[in-house]
Amino acid sequence: MEVRTIKVFTTVDNINLHTQVVDMSMTYGQQFGPTYLDGADVTKIKPHNSHEGKTFYVLPNDDTLRVEAFEYYHTTDPSFLGRYMSALNHTKKWKYPQVNGLTSIKWADNNCYLATALLTLQQIELKFNPPALQDAYYRARAGEAANFCALILAYCNKTVGELGDVRETMSYLFQHANLDSCKRVLNVVCKTCGQQQTTLKGVEAVMYMGTLSYEQFKKGVQIPCTCGKQATKYLVQQESPFVMMSAPPAQYELKHGTFTCASEYTGNYQCGHYKHITSKETLYCIDGALLTKSSEYKGPITDVFYKENSYTTTIK
């Protein structure tokens, strides 16, 4: 009895394709271990004539594949690729409408935090270190965002349907971005203890939790000093293409032309909904596939993004 075979390709990165001759009487799992086709788990399936010449994702289970996976995804987590594939199996079914010149995501599976993050990423200057993220990001900007969303979920250790947080998501993504040249110098002034300067680099240099107003941050924000008295913390120097200011959701007025974009969060910790506000020729609110415009805006804002380049204080 002759062994019926077909020729397929296996890959971990969709760049390096490895030619395989597979036995049609055995499952993919018996031949390769966990195997995925377009995100779908085909591990328990036997090869079919229609699979001839198709590319299958496999887990990096030998040295060659491990090197290829690390170079593309910059992670050695053995569960990463499987999590990416199972997320992709959902995100490829989502709709990605162009809204006001940006790629958004039609609401499904509690994905409003991903839509808000995706919209924000198209408006701030950011370059990702893992080629996987950078490639998928370019495709997302062009309207094909399924891979990018699935990668975000995998890097953030999230599953489809789980509630997510924009600030946490951005923080994970910033860790995989090139923020080497970003720098922030802060000064804390206390009447009792004097003053202390701190220099922050990388992710810490672009994120701040405690106030939404970048102007206020430049002037000074009140913080408790270690001595128990009130101290003032203010920005001395900022070198970065953008800054992200966050605070627990509270009524906040966004003035046209003073910011790049913002995240609105309605609801409580267990259950809520994100919308995205962007400042173009007027203010726009993007909620999944829905767009509304207004000249002014007041609502429960939790993150505001500002364009920056270089700032030095005039406070002496």
Rank of each mutant, 00 (worst) to 15 (best):
H256I: 15
H276W: 06
Q175I: 09
H48R: 13
A69Y: 14
C227N: 00
M209P: 00
R4V: 13
S294M: 15
Y36M: 06
G202I: 01
F217W: 01
R4I: 10
L133Y: 02
S50H: 10
P248V: 15
Q98A: 14
K93H: 14
H273Y: 01
L37S: 12
A140C: 11
L179Y: 02
S279A: 05
L200E: 00
Y72Q: 10
K158E: 05
P241G: 02
S104W: 05
G53C: 10
Q30G: 08
Q238F: 02
E264F: 04
T11Y: 03
L88D: 04
K255W: 05
A132W: 02
N187G: 11
W107A: 03
V21A: 13
K44S: 13
H90M: 12
Q230G: 05
H276T: 03
E308K: 04
Y72V: 04
V206C: 01
Y306R: 03
P249W: 00
G272M: 09
G29Y: 05
T10Q: 08
V3S: 12
L102C: 05
G33C: 02
Y113A: 08
L114D: 02
D38Q: 10
E52M: 11
Y252R: 00
A69S: 09
A87W: 15
G39A: 14
T312C: 07
E125T: 06
K46P: 09
M244T: 02
T91S: 07
G257T: 02
K54R: 12
T211N: 08
C225R: 03
F259W: 02
V12Y: 09
C285Q: 12
T282L: 09
H48N: 13
Q251Y: 15
F80W: 05
H18S: 06
G220M: 05
L283Q: 00
G299A: 09
A136R: 04
G228V: 00
T258P: 03
T260A: 11
L59H: 05
A115K: 00
K127P: 09
N110H: 02
Y214R: 03
N111L: 00
K293N: 12
S295E: 11
T282Q: 13
L290H: 15
Y137D: 04
A150T: 01
K233M: 15
F128N: 05
E239G: 03
E168A: 10
L186T: 14
T120I: 15
D303T: 04
